[in-house]
Each structure stands twice: as structure tokens, then as C-alpha cells.
């Protein structure tokens, strides 16, 4: 209840702070308009036509199922990656050996292009949900893992000693000592992972499945329908913006309220 009240009270200030972001987005749209006027509608349709196409797609009800399918795949892969990555990252961060060992693995996983995973996944999982979900999972895992690992490694040794001196049981060490600190590293990682989860999901659908936004993009491409292509892209980007600023950012603010308290860091 207290939490809800605090969220509601912080809402106007948060929305107000969105004006800057809105202005910068509108500037982008203006540049797009300029480009459209320069190259013509065949190369780059102007924003108004694109948004009209998108509105028509949404109104006819054709867009929702495709968006829902892509969202399901992207979020399933992301959730799996966050669960596995943060768990493993925390464990690896607790041991020096494990964190040293995992470094090259992370480089290896990050260096492997998602498209290569996609080829493998198509062979392993076929044309169902498995392919995009797996590809998203593999693409997001190292990002989340590194965040959790870094967070765990950087916890102040003094606080760890304090926790031992006061005999905190393992549950309290996890929930009251490690997680609040690790969250500061894990959250930015999750936001990055969210972005790549959508990109990778659309890419996987484009090549591997017959439904979802990616498949719809493949159809518009074959029809040379630039307006519809851009409309789909706008829909995906719009959902991404909504998720990041509507869900993740408020959660992050709530979790890190202590950071802004007092305006400065406490003594080490």
C-alpha cells in the first residue's frame, strides 16, 4: 500500500521528466521526414504514411496476434536468460576460480554471432517456438551473466566481513547483502538484454518461422511494401520503449531509492 502510494506520488515527476525524451524522439521523426522527402516514398516512406499503415494494421486486428507471438518468444527467452544468467553469475562471482574460468566463456558466447546460433537452432529445434526462444536465450545469457558476476565481485569486502561477524544466515546474505548491490549491475544488463531479445526474436522469426513480426516482415519485403515494413518496425520499437520506460525504469528507481538518499555515497 505504501509502495503504491509512493509510486503514484512519484508519477507526475516521472512523466514530466519524459518531455526531454519525447522531444528527442520527435526530432528523430523530423529527420526521418526530411529523409523521406529527399529520397521519395519508394525508398523511404514518410512517417505519416507509416503511422497510418500501422494504425490500419492495429485497427484491423491483424497486428496483435503477430506482436503477441513475438513478445511471447522474446520475453520467454529473456526470462530464461535472466533466471539462469543471474543465478550462475552470482554463484560464479562468489568464487575467484569460477569467475576467472567463466571470463573466456563469456567472450566466446558474446563473440558468437546470433545468426550462427540461429542456424544451429533451426537444425536442433525446427520451425517452432524453440528456435527463436533458444536464440534469444543464448544472445542474452552472457550479458546478464556478466552483470551478475560483476555485481557479486564488487561487493565491499568490509560489508562481507560485517555480515560474517553478525552471523547472517545464507538467506539474509543473499537477500539483504548481495541482491541489493548486484541489482545495480544486473538492471542495466537486463535493459540491454531486453533490447537485444526483441532484435534477435524478430531476426529468428524472419528466417525460421511462419508467424510473428519477423515472418510478417518477410512477407512485406517480398511484396516490396516499404510502408508496411516500416510500420512493423515502428510497432516493435514502440513496444520496446514502452517496456523499458513503463516497466523496467520505475522498478529500477524503486529498488535504488537508497542511492539518491542524502545525495551522496555513504562512507566506504
Amino acid at each position: 500500500m505504501r509502495l503504491l502510494w509512493r509510486l503514484l506520488r512519484g508519477m507526475p515527476a516521472y512523466l514530466w521528466s519524459g518531455w526531454g525524451a519525447a522531444a528527442s524522439l520527435l526530432l528523430f521523426v523530423a529527420l526521418w521526414e526530411l529523409g523521406a522527402a529527399w529520397y521519395g516514398a519508394l525508398i523511404l516512406p514518410d512517417p505519416r504514411t507509416t503511422f497510418a499503415t500501422l494504425a490500419a494494421l492495429l485497427q484491423s486486428g491483424a497486428a496483435w496476434p503477430e506482436l503477441a507471438i513475438t513478445a511471447r518468444r522474446a520475453l520467454a527467452g529473456l526470462l530464461l536468460a535472466v533466471a539462469v544468467g543471474s543465478g550462475l553469475g552470482l554463484l560464479a562471482g562468489l568464487s575467484v576460480t569460477a569467475s576467472m574460468m567463466s571470463r573466456p566463456w563469456v567472450t566466446l558466447l558474446l563473440g558468437m554471432p546470433p545468426i550462427a546460433w540461429l542456424v544451429l537452432a533451426m537444425l536442433w529445434f525446427g520451425a517452432g517456438d524453440g528456435t527463436p526462444v533458444f536464440t534469444v536465450f543464448v544472445a542474452c545469457l552472457p550479458v546478464v551473466f556478466t552483470g551478475a558476476l560483476q555485481g557479486t565481485r564488487t561487493l565491499d569486502l568490509h560489508l562481507k566481513d560485517m555480515a560474517r561477524a553478525y552471523r547472517l544466515p545464507w538467506r539474509m546474505r543473499l537477500l539483504d547483502l548481495y541482491l541489493p548491490h548486484v541489482a545495480a549491475y544486473l538492471f542495466p544488463a537486463c535493459i540491454t538484454a531486453l533490447g537485444s531479445s526483441w532484435k534477435v526474436a524478430v531476426m529468428a522469426e524472419l528466417l525460421a518461422t511462419s508467424d510473428g513480426v519477423g515472418a510478417a516482415l518477410a512477407v512485406t519485403r517480398s511484396h516490396l511494401d516499404m510502408g508496411a515494413s516500416l510500420a512493423w518496425i515502428c510497432a516493435v520499437v514502440g513496444i520496446l520503449l514502452l517496456l523499458e520506460y513503463g516497466v523496467l525504469e520505475p522498478i529500477k528507481r524503486e529498488l535504488e531509492r537508497w542511492r539518491s538518499a542524502g545525495g551522496s555515497q555513504p562512507l566506504a
Binding site: 553478525y166 547472517l168 539474509m172 562512507l267
Partner: peptide, 24 residues
């Protein structure tokens, strides 16, 4: 133990920090 620095958990309010050992 009382350490050289206060070593309070920065993400906990004072009341929870004081009660930390009791919670444990």
C-alpha cells in the same frame, strides 16, 4: 563487533541496520 567504519548497509534504513543482528 564494531568496526573502524560504521559499515552500515547503504540500502537499509537505520532501523533495519540496527536490527540486522536480531534478524539474523
Amino acid at each position: 563487533v564494531m568496526f573502524q567504519q560504521p559499515r552500515l548497509l547503504p540500502w537499509m534504513v537505520t532501523r533495519d541496520n540496527i536490527a540486522l543482528g536480531l534478524k539474523a
